[in-house]
Nucleic acid binder design. Structure first.
Length: 264
DNA sequence: ATGACGGATCTAATCCGA
């Protein structure tokens, strides 16, 4: 089972790009973030042409929005208004994987604004509340088969950013966020699937700013997108991919698709 | 490198991302 997480930054605009990706990679499940489309305008036809029979989504106009496209049935779909802000940033479903029932959660964690201080920056306060909610939520789910993916908007490790020193005070890499993320990871003993396969000493990015014409020239990227699984799936992990070339296609998202291949 | 870009929206100039 190939599971993809992709912050697509407008599903309708990038349907052709997504089609290319699906034709090239043939994933079984795609979790999208920043679909930027209200549910009544969801592009059903275009998505159907991608070849996914099971589609669930939770969107809003202009901002946020998440979706799961799957070749396997999606059961018990849930859309949670995390921390009560009314944003469409979560969708989950249960998928059968061999003899296991896997609970798949797709998150678009708030970016958090500019200032890493919840007292003066309501967006950072929102981000921390969102992360705290996740800690409590997954504490209750210990022992389940879990896969949680998405744009977490946090690059936790030194080599998840282009310059650890220069980004220590930049939202996405501040110690306060990184500690919260580690709490979530510990809450249900998750494995960071990409770092399971890619050594921590190796730079690994999934996002590059739109500013600057050639993102790989300076390579000032960050690893903001993640696929985690519970230990019960550890022996099923086969490989991971980060499709960096999708940052330099025509009209790219500022994020690239990432993939984890689980085998039965 | 706190924005030089890019997306969506009451198609102009504004909000937002990270």
């Amino acid at each position: 089972m190939k599971i993809v997480s992709y912050n697509i930054n407008s599903l309708r605009l990038r349907l052709p790009l997504l089609k290319n990706f699906v034709d090239e990679i043939n994933p079984d499940v795609i979790c999208l973030q920043e679909t930027k489309v209200a549910d009544e305008f969801f592009p059903h036809e275009g998505v159907k042409e991608l070849g996914f029979e099971y589609v669930e989504f939770s969107g809003e106009k202009s901002y946020n929005g998440v979706a799961i496209l799957s070749k396997f049935p999606l059961k018990n779909t849930q859309k949670i208004d995390v921390a009560g802000y009314g944003h469409k940033r979560h969708i989950s479903a249960t998928i059968e994987f061999g003899d296991k029932e896997v609970e798949l959660h797709n998150f678009y964690i708030p970016a958090g604004g500019d200032e890493a201080d919840p007292k003066i920056n309501p967006k950072f306060d929102h981000k921390l509340k969102f992360l705290d909610w996740m800690v409590e939520h997954f504490k209750e789910k210990q022992g389940k088969n879990l896969i949680i993916v998405g744009d977490f908007n946090i690059a936790p490790l030194e080599h998840d950013v282009w310059s650890h020193k220069q980004l220590l005070k930049v939202v996405s890499h501040t110690p306060i966020e990184v500690e919260r993320l580690e709490k979530i990871r510990a809450s249900a003993d998750f494995i960071d699937t990409h770092r399971h396969f890619v050594p921590e000493s190796e730079k690994l990015f999934s996002w590059w700013s739109y500013r600057g014409k050639e993102p790989f020239k300076s390579n000032r990227g960050r690893r903001l997108d993640h696929i985690w699984c519970s230990h019960s799936l550890k022996n099923h992990m086969k490989s991971v991919e980060t499709y960096q070339n999708y940052r330099i296609v025509e009209s790219p998202s500022d994020h690239v698709p990432i993939l984890t291949h689980f085998q039965k």
